[in-house]
Amino acid sequence: MIVKQEETLTINVKPGWTKGTKVTFEGKGDEKPGYLPADIIFTIQEKRHELFKRTGDDLEIVVEIPLVKALTGCSLSVPLLGGETMSIHVSEVIYPGYEKVIHGQGMPNVKGDKRGDLRITFLVKFPTELSDEQRSETCSILAGCC
């Protein structure tokens, strides 16, 4: 006799699990007379985050800053994965491709107590136009840099 039975299975997703992680419930699938019950296998998928991109255990974020702050340094508030923010100070000149790494603020590592890093890439916002006077002042200020 075949009896239809419903069972609720719970998956406790652990922090740091990556796309492709499989969770198997052995013998919890369909049964047929004369056969062993089937396994149920779930495969973890990752949902895209609006701010962060995941690379292994590291998280990447892009932060936009104005040109003046890129040249003179700045303090800014950076969002963290849990919803908090962290205040950081950058005193170096921020150039194209500049990246600041905050150790231990990435994803948890499933195999240990370590966390990945938060990698901040800066997008420098340039002015769209300058007056002749601003161009002249900029040239005189930056003449020694070229």
Rank of each mutant, 00 (worst) to 15 (best):
G73Y: 09
T18H: 10
V13F: 09
I88T: 02
L36H: 05
E7S: 11
F42I: 01
K47Q: 10
A38C: 07
D39P: 01
K53N: 03
V68Y: 09
V63Y: 09
R54Y: 08
E26V: 08
T21D: 06
P66Y: 07
G106E: 12
L80Q: 02
P37I: 04
V13M: 08
K125R: 13
E137G: 03
G112W: 13
E92L: 03
I44N: 00
G97K: 15
D57L: 04
T85P: 00
K53P: 00
L130C: 00
T21V: 10
P127I: 01
K19H: 03
D57R: 09
A70E: 01
T121H: 12
T72C: 11
E129H: 05
D117I: 01
K19R: 07
K4W: 09
N12Y: 12
L130S: 00
L9E: 01
T55H: 14
T72A: 12
E129M: 08
G104M: 11
D58H: 13
C74V: 09
C146A: 10
I65W: 13
G83P: 01
P33T: 00
S140D: 11
S91I: 01
E64Q: 15
T43I: 14
T72L: 13
V101C: 07
D30I: 11
W17Y: 15
I141W: 07
A143P: 01
P15N: 06
L71I: 02
P66C: 02
G16A: 07
E64G: 03
H49M: 04
T18S: 04
S136Q: 14
K28N: 06
P66K: 05
F42P: 00
T10V: 13
L81F: 14
E92K: 11
T10F: 06
K111C: 12
I2W: 02
K69A: 06
G112R: 10
I120A: 03
L130D: 00
